[in-house]
Design a protein around this nucleic acid. Sequence first.
DNA 1: AACTGCATCAAGAAATAGTATTGATGTAGT
DNA 2: ACTACATCAATACTATTTCTTGATGCAGTT
Lengths: 202, 202
Amino acid sequence: MDKNDLIFTQIQPLLNYFTELIPLNAEEQHLVIELFKPRLYRKRQYALQEGDICNQFNFVVRGCLRMYKVDDKGNTHILQFASENWWISNIGSFHERKPSGLNIDALEDTMVLQISHENLLALYTQAPKFDRIFRVLIENNFVSLQKRLLQNISSTAEERYLSFLENYSHLSNRLPQTQIASFLGITPEFLSRLRNKQAKNS
Amino acid sequence: MDKNDLIFTQIQPLLNYFTELIPLNAEEQHLVIELFKPRLYRKRQYALQEGDICNQFNFVVRGCLRMYKVDDKGNTHILQFASENWWISNIGSFHERKPSGLNIDALEDTMVLQISHENLLALYTQAPKFDRIFRVLIENNFVSLQKRLLQNISSTAEERYLSFLENYSHLSNRLPQTQIASFLGITPEFLSRLRNKQAKNS
DNA sequence: AACTGCATCAAGAAATAGTATTGATGTAGT
DNA sequence: ACTACATCAATACTATTTCTTGATGCAGTT
């Protein structure tokens, strides 16, 4: 398999993703192939480090990334997981071109397709359809974020955990409990007890 | 401890390093503090990836980095380790602004102080003393490289290993044998046998 | 032809690092 | 006092990384 085949195989999920939102013509597909670059992040590797400007918009082909904030006490709080077919990037830092307060790193070896800020602007110019595609995509992200926030302010840890199981069933046995706990905003110990309780009740 | 104290603590070893070569006045110290940025590389993280242009000159505060070449067969050959108070960067790529054929990555979580190409030029302009400091520093690197080359073409693996033990005693029990073997240019298995032999002879 | 200095491959053992569980104890808010 | 969590410490478990060993091979001396 030569290099082009390889890139093509990896880019297929992204083309599918776009096409499901809005069908692309050949030229648009070609732009995507040209402007998105495949990149491998190895487990624990940063895709974005606090203080740097986020310059890439990432689509996960396989693996899993997380975006998180480290607070003054050194605790990490996970804002988002991104596994297959999800987008991740610090949108604020990306668009306003200012240093990120958040980190993104890899929980598994992760292949992404990424487009740089510059190339994304070029993409919008050359194929205005992507304005709409990215609007929709960001709306989706926004909605799921809003949902999480709402849940956070209105539910107990147990409820949040159950909802996590529903919404992220593919991740619940794939990620370490530490990460899930940090996503739910509880300690790993408490999550362990919650899981125990669940097991007993079933 | 606030953020400034933190940066100051980290930058001290670098100021010491320079001062031992040539004393710096307050203004020069200030430039160093301003132009060198602390940065953490986590174990396995790349500081420079083949194909990218090396844009940073790195001083290791703690931890250990390695610079290596991956050959056509996929074997890696380590050119240099850099632990505390050592410099590392692909000087060729850095100065000629062309893609690196070498990789740099972290063998341990590593804190570096790094200066970008742009800022280093600014430093030379604003404080010409650094021309001399960096000349000396690069000379030191050059000499140790030459020594290694000479040894490589003139010694058996066992001799090279013994010399490694002398010159890098602080690393010999800190790095995995795989890495040391790759530095010596032998297989880990053969290094294992050499070590065995040593142990018996003493 | 035998010997030396290495390599390669495969399998298993040993060491280390990462993750999960549990108990004891504490605290803020109802 | 009770609920919903946190913190700390110890232990257990699992996975990953690293090391060792044996078998085999080969190229370049002696």
